Computed example of a mutant assay.
Amino acid sequence: MFPIRDHNPSGRTPYVTYALMAINVVVFLSYVGLFADDRALNRFFFDYAAIPARILSGDGFSTLVTSMFLHGGWLHLGGNMLFLYIFGDNVEDEMGHAPFLGFYLATGVAASAIHILSAPGSVVPVVGASGAIAGVMGAYLLLFPKARIDILLILIIIFRIFPIPAWIMLALWFGMQFIGGVGSDPNAGGVAYWAHAGGFVAGVILTVPLWLRLGGPAFWRRTDGHPPHPQARYASSRIPKVRR
């Protein structure tokens, strides 16, 4: 079960979201050939991925940013870009282009910091835009908790698309990250659950000033948690179509 689109059209072109997606793709293509050479790939990740033990020793602080634009494979990249495409445009629309870029980078750094605190002695390189995108999802939850998200459900041979409120999908996602973090060893590699959870919480916190400027609880009462504009409508289909 994963989201394929929302019913929340953006009021202006999300240039920063598109630029971030393009940068992530271009950066991945620039080193994808290294996956055939483990030694070269490990050296590349040592230079540009975030390694908790190295950062806490006082070295490699720039990797807190560079690691946000690296990915561990095609599925990792594709999944992150799908989530950024679905949720990024609306958050950018509300924040503005430059503030959204600063917000994205800040939540990405915060996510890496939370992971480092959870695994201070780890020498496993951490890569991915997931922490920053989790921050975008946290902002989306605060601003549009009842926006409709189309979910693609796959049960062996059954493919079904159905809409659910954003708060349900995002709460389930956050719960999975929290449970995953509690039940895993962050020093052992794999999914950086605490980075995801930390980025999400950072996104909510950093969006509070904007939410208050919009009216805070009065904004929710005025919109009932829905986007403050007509929702997008899609033709009924069993085949997912991602359109604006």
Rank of each mutant, 00 (worst) to 15 (best):
P228N: 10
A49M: 10
Y104D: 00
I205K: 04
Q177R: 05
L172P: 07
I156T: 12
Q177M: 15
V208K: 05
A49Q: 10
P209G: 12
I149K: 03
L101F: 15
M1W: 06
A111I: 06
L82M: 01
D37S: 06
F83L: 15
R233M: 03
W211I: 01
I164E: 00
D37V: 04
G189M: 04
M21Q: 14
L82N: 00
I156C: 09
L29M: 06
G72H: 08
A22G: 06
M95G: 11
F200Y: 03
L75T: 15
L56N: 15
I205Q: 04
Y104A: 04
L141R: 10
R160F: 04
D59P: 07
S237I: 00
I179S: 08
L152Q: 00
A110S: 03
G190L: 08
G183H: 13
I51P: 02
F69V: 12
Q231S: 14
F2R: 08
I149L: 02
I161T: 01
D150I: 07
R233A: 04
M169L: 13
L141P: 10
V127I: 03
A139R: 07
L170Y: 00
A19T: 15
Y15H: 13
W74Q: 02
Y104L: 11
A129G: 06
M137I: 13
L214R: 15
K146I: 06
I51S: 02
G78E: 02
A232K: 07
F35S: 12
L64F: 02
G216C: 09
V65K: 12
L152W: 03
S237N: 03
V182D: 04
H97E: 13
G138L: 05
P217D: 13
M169Q: 14
Q231D: 14
A188C: 05
F174M: 10
A53N: 06
G198D: 04
P14K: 09
L152A: 03
S57C: 11
I51V: 14
D150V: 15
G131C: 05
H76T: 07
P165S: 09
P145A: 00
P52Q: 03
T13C: 12
R221Q: 08
G96M: 14
F28C: 02
A22C: 05
G58P: 02
V32M: 08
I23V: 15
L206H: 07
L20H: 05
V109W: 13
T107G: 04
